[in-house]
Design a binder for these strands. Structure first.
Lengths: 248, 248
DNA sequence: AAGAATAGTGAATCTACAC
DNA sequence: CGTGTAGATTCACTATTCT
């Protein structure tokens, strides 16, 4: 029976206190890349930045809380993310994997942070969002990216698993949506397969706990860390509800 | 009536002699990323490096020539590609685009080169290859990437065009295959749409001329540069054949 | 329907060289 | 001359797609 825990606090403070081992680190950090100017990136709040114009700016359809930690410049982002991933590597079992979400703008910085932290970069899995907004006279920004790294040689599964090179799924909408940058559980369930069966998933940026739902659904245990108390509570309620009812 | 030219020689030598303007620069450079050891990367020929064990190594069906320029280390790759893209930017009309192919390993270096050369990075379009090789206990390396940059503010089309955020297509096989790293014409035709209608596509690494076929098919003119005389000849024959018969 | 291909990779084996 | 190590080479392997 897989178990779960949500810690409330800063990943940099919580990670050194944990003991592990973790068999998969799945991280969805604040991308620090929304907004077009430096001042927009560092001063705007996350609701204004990430919710497309027409909703949050002029009276919204949804009323999701913002989140902290999204106002670093690119150098600070790289160093900060490397520190978090270093803390996660300390807990990671040999052969375990790290999966780090990023967008196209921060992909190079994220790959630097992953490797600076000591993980071996093994590949990139694009996440295709079919419902992304079209862009006039240009290529639609339809993908985010999952960077895959391992702690040494990758864990050998028995039986061998073959995982996709591209995942597809739309962001949750309506009342299933709990966080501005929420990832679909279907996508996360595919990604969690790289974790050792019955192993433990460590998530330093738990948000509303989608990775936890995916982990439990795939029979992995889950340890989440979330900075914003509001979301830590939401994640706890959601995971408790999942274990009680099997529904999200 | 769109026109075409293939120049035989090194892009760094040919680009300064051209006058332009170009409305789209499409570049498929040698990725310099195959091989696992330093000596494999720098000494192995491209056929041995990229054609998988079952074919070229033990008696192949196809017998494609190798190509030059695939033995740089990553720093040299970055600097060299930046030089080529700088030469291309000089010819690029204001608002024109650059599209640069790369793989996941070289994506960060390629984005550095694109921006160092003075292009504004606008996005990434993953190219999904359905026939990619599976990878045991990991995520299949199923995508290559197209980096999109512009010379200043992007050209505004009239009427507005909406381009995909993800392209999919398999490498040509059988007798339609002329180059080890050939890109599918269907994919290139989608990408060429970002070029001003009836504009000119500049291709510093023409290879077997697939981008030229795509350009002509979409009513754009084409200027290609190819280092290997063997492939320059193939590209000339192919483009002449396309204009004569409308078939590839 | 059968066969062959894939901008690979991990493990096993072999080789060269220093001590 | 045996031994250990690093680097190079060879081998085996895989699932989806395309001819």
């Amino acid at each position: 029976m897989p178990t779960w825990t949500i810690h409330h606090g800063d990943a940099l403070a919580i990670l050194p206190a944990l003991t592990g081992p973790a068999d998969l680190v799945i991280a969805d950090p604040p991308y620090n890349s929304g907004g077009r100017t430096a001042s927009e990136r560092t001063s705007m709040d996350t609701r204004t930045k990430y919710v497309s114009s027409g909703s949050a700016r002029k009276g919204a359809q949804h009323d999701l809380a913002g989140f902290a930690g999204d106002n670093r410049d690119q150098r600070a982002f790289t160093v900060w993310l490397a520190m978090v991933l270093t803390g996660a590597l300390r807990l990671a079992a040999p052969g375990s994997s790290a999966l780090v979400f990023t967008d196209w703008r921060q992909l190079p910085a994220t790959s630097d942070a992953l490797q600076a932290a000591g993980w071996t970069w093994r590949g990139v899995v694009p996440w295709h969002k079919p419902t992304s907004r079209p862009r006039p006279d240009g290529f639609r920004p339809a993908c985010e990216y999952v960077l895959w790294g391992t702690n040494g040689q990758p864990y050998r599964h028995a039986p061998t698993v073959y995982l996709p090179g591209l995942v597809s799924g739309s962001q949750p909408r309506g009342h299933g949506r709990r966080h501005i940058t929420q990832k679909p559980v279907d996508v996360l369930r595919q990604l969690v397969q790289v974790c050792r069966p019955a192993g433990t998933v460590l998530d330093p940026f738990a948000g509303a706990g989608s990775a936890g739902v995916a982990a439990l659904a795939e029979d992995r245990s889950y340890i989440g860390i979330e900075l914003t108390e509001h979301y830590a509570d939401i994640a706890r309620q959601r995971l408790a509800g999942w274990q009680a009812t099997g529904a999200d």
